[in-house]
Simulated assay, not measured.
Amino acid sequence: MDTHYSIDHLPGRTIDLDGQDYLFFSGTSYLGISQDPTFRSLLAEGMARYGTVFGSSRNGNLQLRIYEEAESRLAAFARAEAALTLSSGMLAGQAVVNWLKGQGFEFIYAPNAHPAIWQEPTTRLPTGSFDDWTRQLPELVAAAATPHIVIALNALDALFSVAYSFDWVNQLPGNQAITLLVDDSHGLGVSGPEGSGIGSQIPKRPNVRLIVTASLAKAMGLPGGVIFSDPQTLSAIRRTAFFGACSPTPPAYLYAFCQAQGSYHAAFNQLLENIRLFEKRVGTSDLFQHIPDYPVFYTDQDRLYSYLLANRIFVYSFAYPTPTDKPNTRIVINALHRPEDIERLGDYLYGKAR
């Protein structure tokens, strides 16, 4: 299970492993944008205009308009008030965490919160289930030592393909200033209405400020990260030394994103079609745990990895987030898969392969 393989090309629906084609049901390129011909052509246009990188502070005295345009489009896509881009999802999370820490906010973490929103090295995540944690949350908030609280969590559990309800937000105390910090790296682009992510699905409260962070390098296929919140919050984060010292997302990619809205829409619809085809094949089987219409199918049957690999089907299976963790075995559907790929996978899973 701890064997690692090396290839020298970008995975898509297949990979070349030791000279043989394997179906590839792994990775996080859910929409397959990095393989989309239209997107690649637009990226070449963007590089012709902006070069490969813009190695300047976003707070410098020379600005590129593409950043404002892309952030406006990202905010509209996510149904958020405003957006701010950085060079990675990890950096987006840490920019927010550092800003909140500087104001003396007390952090309350959910189980399995992503490292992007940790306060290293002091963060200790609670054990137990997410539902148990939400039941304890009003009491935890009320017992906090400061009136300013940050509740930090993931939008969903991508490791085990479990959806989170946010109904508990309505039960939070109404007399404390609460910031809800949500990492949506594995939801943006593939979950929520038209792939818009979690932001619009979280209940609104007058005393609860919502900040959503995400990697753009997964479903969105962009080397960068994003913060969604209200304009005043993002303006304050932008004024920090942490943000000012960061190199930005390469502008050519943001140009391609702005021009490729049709590709994103088509890829999302194709992904849904592929997921539903596999859901139909899985049926009521208890082999997998998964969120409806979500591309990740978790199994506790780790031996499935070796069996499928022997039949030239490569799936996700390795210890995460640290090498000492139990292997996590998942099948990941993407928008590039063809119906015959999914049928072949189903045949091997349910003993019908010829």
Rank of each mutant, 00 (worst) to 15 (best):
L43E: 09
G60R: 03
T85H: 00
F107Y: 07
L42A: 04
N61I: 13
M47F: 04
L31P: 08
D18W: 04
G19P: 02
Y67W: 05
G46E: 01
S41N: 09
G51P: 09
L43W: 06
Q20C: 05
Q20H: 09
R124H: 08
S57W: 08
F24L: 00
E68V: 13
G60H: 02
A78R: 04
T122A: 09
A116D: 15
S87H: 03
G60E: 10
D36R: 09
E106I: 11
F25A: 10
A83F: 11
R40T: 10
N112G: 05
A95Q: 02
N112V: 10
S34F: 04
G60L: 02
F24E: 03
S56N: 10
G55T: 07
A78K: 03
A75V: 03
A48N: 12
R13T: 11
L84C: 03
F24Y: 15
G104Q: 03
L42W: 04
K101E: 12
M47N: 08
A83T: 11
D18N: 15
I117M: 09
R40M: 11
A113H: 00
E71A: 06
E120F: 13
P37S: 15
A78P: 06
A110C: 02
G104S: 02
P121C: 02
F54H: 07
L42K: 11
L64P: 07
N112H: 13
E81L: 10
Y67G: 07
G55A: 11
D18Q: 12
F107A: 01
W118K: 05
T38E: 12
W118I: 00
A76P: 03
T123Y: 01
G46N: 02
N59T: 15
N98V: 01
I108F: 04
E68K: 15
A116Y: 10
V53R: 15
L74A: 05
P37E: 13
A110W: 03
L43K: 07
D16N: 15
G93W: 02
Q20E: 15
F39I: 13
Q63E: 13
G51S: 09
E81W: 12
G51E: 09
G46R: 00
S34Q: 08
L43T: 03
R58W: 00
G102N: 14
S72R: 14
S56T: 03
T38S: 11
P121V: 01
N98G: 04
H114F: 05
L84F: 09
A110G: 06
Y50K: 09
P37A: 13
Q20M: 09
L84N: 07
P111E: 09
A110D: 08
E71R: 01
Q94P: 02
K101V: 13
G19N: 04
H114Q: 10
P111A: 08
S26N: 13
R124T: 12
R13L: 00
I15G: 00
P37W: 14
A116T: 12
A92R: 01
A82V: 06
L42F: 08
L74H: 04
R49I: 12
L62C: 06
W99Q: 07
I33H: 08
W118D: 05
D36W: 03
M47W: 03
L31G: 06
A110P: 04
R73S: 15
A44K: 15
S72G: 12
A78Q: 03
S41T: 14
S88M: 02
N61E: 13
F105H: 07
S41C: 07
G104L: 04
E68T: 13
R65C: 01
G89E: 03
V96P: 02
G19H: 00
